[in-house]
Write a protein that binds this DNA or RNA. Structure first.
Lengths: 206, 206, 206, 206
DNA sequence: GATGAATGAGTGTTCATTCAT
DNA sequence: GATGAATGAACACTCATTCAT
């Protein structure tokens, strides 16, 4: 907790009391709900405070401004997504390369299938600033590591990791944003897996 | 809209643009400039009108509201990008599959390298609404067609076209948004080409 | 008018139409009234707009922000005060030194006796920023000039002008602010005149 | 208040300050510092409490509201200034009239040269309310007394005391507020002294 | 007595949009 | 058709103050 306190310099007050932590959680949860219900346009500090059941002043006691709130939410969502993916991979350590890729893809799809608008809005808002790179880092790192883990998967260069991670995210993100009906279908999953396997194979062939 | 250019074909000198069309063009160009200079935050109808040299009332005579303006701009930008890619492909009809893919990738990269902020903002704003799907359609169609064109490229299914186009756009978009230094490098281009070729090869192997 | 337009770079829109000028006047007059009625604490942009009978948006079309409004008001009040003093001095060109000083003192007292709170608040607000010096300049210049005019009054140095003008303003300002009952009495006027004459005499004796 | 120091005179070691008094002192000192650092705009009760190292609740245990805090601070500052001037006058009891005036002027200049912003802000805030008269009383009284002390200085009437004290304060205040470079120069001091002497001489001549 | 989390009325300001001229 | 003055709902954010712990 002490190390987490530094993470967001913009955070006004580090909650020391239980009540305060509950408040912060409530505000973040309300943020996600508001975003989910009405998108970025409905995401006003007053609306969030109201939904969280706290006063607007309280919100500002914990988040320096609207952007800080959005960043904190993005961090939380990202952490959750990564945790879900990591859990999926941990599930079956001696699976084959393709099986591991499939597990990862499925985890990502599932992670993104809840609260679509909220995630979309968070992603958009974050990308609107310059924060995208740092936020993507964990995903990139994660991908690079999980590739290396595997016999069948060669070590990727920096740029290859970039291309693979962004292609993967791009496909999933588009499917979410465009609300594609086949989003959670097996055939879609197959194609995404093929994208990863195909690229890695082509890279290995060099 | 189709009749626009033909209307007075018999006249010697087709007035290339009526007064109204000039105004619309000026407003769209001003929109792009404002977006480029200050991002979505600076994109106000008053700012656009001022830069276009027309009154705010005139702007509203041609565009029902701000969103309509944004949509029109997005359409124009999209049309231009597609035209550039098409021109690149037309350039060398009997090139090999890889060469054609490379030409396309290069055209897309170049198309996106000018007016980065404007394009990014347009994309974001459009995605913020639900308009994304219809707007993406031309790109998807385009990709499907150009693939089919080629001996070496198999006919892709609907979902495969989706995956390929979104992966491609995802990578380029990320490189633009994150301002990656290698954006216009040869090695980056190589990897993007590899992504397409690799995927198509894997799909063909099925 | 053209030269006046430059005076306040913060002014948003230079009124070109009659209606617009009336609006500006109404806003300034409303500012003075609000200030007079409730002091600086009541001086909110919304209150001013309401009293002026215009919308808050209109107010901001002519004044960049609250400070700009305050500055414009200060300028107007200062101009009026100076005009009143100048008119008094012009009234009797061949009066004696003491008579001229008395006329000036009386004009200042009268100028400051209307809308006390408004003037007080304007002065305070202006002094709160750094704008005091530039605003005081006209008064200082005025004093220096009117002194020089007169046989009986020696040419004052820069610092003497400063001391005399500030002492004079200090006395009148204090009488206004403290709402001294003798403010408009003859005996008070006598003493203020004595202050000026006495200082000038002492300075001349050197 | 008078009983404060005597209360436990019989005790060996008089606790120089009770806990409560220390807290009050800390809050007042913090107020002055906050005011000095950021002017009236930065003077918030929360900021003062934080700088004083007490909770906002504690601050409100000692001061009914923000205005009370400001009043207390003004009183403290005034008392200190007067004490400094008094000390200067006590220094050389048999000095001439001019020397005594000069000592007073110098003491006032020095008193006002520290913590300019704080003093300025206090004065402004106090004047913004109606409290000015009562606060000025000590200065007025002081001046009247010190004049009377002196052979060379005639007894001044009520209004004369007012004019002299306000002129004096007006000049020094203006020099402070306008940050005049000659504020602590000898020539400036000369002129202020001249202002006092000149006025008193003119008054005596009647 | 001390704390500090919570409050919420109130502020300055923006900007899409309208409509009389 | 063009203008631009006017509108006002809506927003982000502040801070004096309270009160349960």
């Amino acid at each position: 907790m002490a190390s987490r306190a530094q993470a967001f310099a913009t955070k006004r007050r580090i909650p020391r009391q239980t009540r305060a932590e509950e408040t912060v959680t409530a505000i973040l949860e309300a943020s996600a709900q508001v975003l989910e219900a009405g998108g970025l346009a409905a995401f006003t500090t007053n609306a969030v405070a109201e939904r969280a059941g706290v006063s607007i002043g309280t919100l500002y006691q914990y988040f320096a401004d609207k952007q800080a709130l959005l960043r904190a939410l993005a961090e939380r969502e990202l952490r959750r997504t990564l945790a879900a993916v990591a859990a999926a991979l941990r599930g079956n350590p001696q699976a084959s390369g393709e099986e591991r890729v499939r597990a990862m893809v499925r985890a990502m799809v599932n992670a993104f299938s809840g609260r679509l608008r909220a995630r979309r809005a968070v992603v958009q808002a974050i990308l609107a600033q310059g924060a995208s790179f740092e936020m993507m880092q964990p995903i990139t790192t994660f991908l690079a590591q999980s590739e290396g883990h595997d016999r069948a998967l060669v070590k990727l260069t920096r740029e290859q990791t970039f291309v693979l991670s962004r292609a993967l995210m791009g496909v999933i993100r588009a499917a979410v944003v465009e609300e594609q009906p086949f989003f959670k279908s097996r055939s879609f999953e197959d194609e995404v897996v093929r994208l990863v396997i195909g690229y890695v194979a082509a890279a290995a062939a060099t």
